[in-house]
């Protein structure tokens, strides 16, 4: 055999082995959470002093679009385990004239305060090829635990722009991974590239003044006295803001309104 043939064969073998030895993961499990968020060096805020309340309804004007049916045939397990709740899109969920899954938050927290990061993890579960919850809020460096309760595999793709993007595979039922998000980001889309209909949105904040509208579009925020810019964000209908001032332990009613017509424009 000519020398050059031996050389070519050996080179191919060595390079192929070198190529196969690459790879790596981006699982961020095990990262320690920071003790607090907010402005560094300030006094730690006590939520008991948040005596004011801003609450209201996220109203939906017009006829809500019909919930799109999700085609799950790409994965027989998903098709088999679909329920009436999981087999329709949660993009626009309206009940009692109110829009659910709207992230409501204070745009800028009171200056000079630091906020304790909750130790309890936010859990997002993949069950029936569906993210639960669909929309959630959390604080920076609060543990975010992603579970796979399905007998199929999922990837958790955090489409972060401010935080570090993450893409983790969960091949086996029961797998759990922790994801570290250490910067404010709203919205933070999370999606499964295996099952394209699976998506979720997070709001990550350096303060605790945030929530997600529930049944009937209702929401409530506990706030310390002050003047705030309140933001309401929805995945389809975008963002709206309003100013509000709360004094002492008063409760202010602050409604937002989104309309089907606005989205169509």
């Amino acid at each position: 055999m000519p020398k050059r043939l031996v050389f070519v064969c050996s080179s191919i073998l060595v390079l192929a082995l070198a190529a196969a030895c690459g790879g790596g993961g981006n699982d961020t499990s095990g990262l320690p959470p920071a003790p607090a968020g907010g402005a560094p060096g300030g006094a730690t805020f006590d939520m008991a002093t948040a005596t004011g309340t801003v609450s209201g309804k996220i109203a939906f004007e017009g006829t809500p679009p019909p919930a799109a049916r999700i085609q799950m045939s790409a994965d027989p397990y998903c098709a088999m385990s679909a329920t009436p709740e999981t087999s329709v899109s949660e993009e626009v969920k309206v009940s009692d004239g109110g829009l659910e899954n709207v992230i409501v938050y204070v745009k800028t927290a009171p200056a000079g305060l630091t906020f304790a990061t909750p130790a309890a993890p936010i859990v997002i579960d993949q069950k029936g090829c569906h993210y639960s919850p669909h929309v959630f809020t959390m604080m920076v460096r609060q543990p975010l635990e992603v579970r796979n309760s399905d007998m199929t595999l999922h990837n958790i793709h955090v489409w972060a722009e401010t935080n570090t993007p993450v893409n983790i595979g969960q091949a086996v039922q029961g797998m759990k991974n922790n994801i570290n998000l250490d910067k404010e980001e709203v919205p933070l889309p999370i999606r499964c590239d295996v099952h394209r209909w699976m998506n979720s949105f997070a709001g990550v904040f350096s303060h605790p003044f945030h929530t997600v509208s529930g049944a009937g579009g209702a929401y409530s925020l506990k706030l310390p006295p002050g003047t705030y810019e309140i933001v309401a964000w929805h995945e389809k209908y975008g963002m709206k803001t309003q100013m509000v001032t709360v004094a002492g332990s008063e409760t202010k009613d602050l409604g937002f309104s989104f309309s089907a017509a606005a989205a169509a424009d």
Partner: peptide, 15 residues
């Protein structure tokens, strides 16, 4: 089909 990241690891696929 925007499936480029449906398999998050390499060279194996989900190990």
């Amino acid at each position: 089909t925007e499936s480029g990241l449906a398999v998050p690891d390499w060279p194996l696929s989900y190990g």
